[in-house]
Design a protein around this nucleic acid. Structure first.
Lengths: 141, 141
DNA sequence: GTTTATCCTATTAAATCTATAGGGTAATAT
DNA sequence: ATATTACCCTATAGATTTAATAGGATAAAC
């Protein structure tokens, strides 16, 4: 399941990406427009700023704004920050590798190969999708 | 993240699939061999039996056994039973469709298209992998 | 210096996942 | 028959994660 955190984060990012200019937008405006708890969204935007996706400005006329071109923000980056590892098990994760505590040996694990294929399939999608693609015409089907 | 339920279920299924015959195997033996809490595994096997993957026999000499050929058990089926929907959001789910409560319109939702692609990528993998594939030689990479 | 709006940590509330408890039921062996 | 074995089944407790809130600190604008 996609967490609300990721969902809200993506909605906020697309909201900002859709705008013609990069003037700061207040949290309140995004929250209201996208139907998101303002405080919750606040913590999400903070995370996105700390990870280099957003810039912010304090005080009157302040708010958040995109710091990069939407074309240059791949889904892999956003998903890893908001949702965590793309892999379903740590032992096949590229960026969050960890040994599975209950698995004695990856080479004999029956699930390992499947999880590898799943990871690659998801990576393929996320790598080939940027924030810009999300605000464009909807994908077919 | 893959739940322990699914992980344990898959391990139990592969354990049973690997055997040469289809004699009943006790829960205790599977649990011990795969390092799984016996009571937890019990409830998982029960689910798998109720969904037509396993048969069971009571009393002495009883246990669980595979009811189908491993080749005829696609990952889609197992994942849906144990892990739930393959889609990350209900609005793109084939078998568990539901409208997202916070989304006014799927046609204008910026995430919809992405989630559709992710779902299809995962389906592609799960549809083309059977339980038999899990006990074979490990996938490359 | 007052207002505005982000910054930041901590805490609570809710939901989900994992595991256990404890007795019921049916099959087998003797 | 009856004792034993092993699955059947529901409920519940414990642990973890997710979602949301609280409340003040900091910095910019006017």
């Amino acid at each position: 399941m996609l967490s609300k955190k990721t969902k809200y984060g993506l909605k906020a990012l697309t909201f900002l990406a859709k705008r013609e200019n990069r003037d700061p937008i207040q949290i309140a405006e995004i929250a209201q427009s996208e139907n998101i708890s303002q405080k919750f969204l606040e913590s999400i935007l903070l995370t996105l700023r700390r990870n280099g996706f957003l810039g912010s400005k304090k005080g009157k006329g302040g708010g958040y704004y995109l710091i990069k071109n939407p074309e240059d923000i791949p889904m892999t980056a956003i998903m890893r920050i908001l949702e965590g590892p793309i892999a379903m098990v740590p032992c096949v994760s590229l960026n969050f590798y960890e040994k599975c505590d209950d698995c004695p040996d990856e080479n004999t694990c029956s699930i390992f190969g499947l999880m590898l294929k799943v990871r690659d399939a998801n990576l393929e999608v996320y790598r080939n999708t940027s924030l810009a693609d999300l605000i464009g015409i909807k994908t077919s089907n």
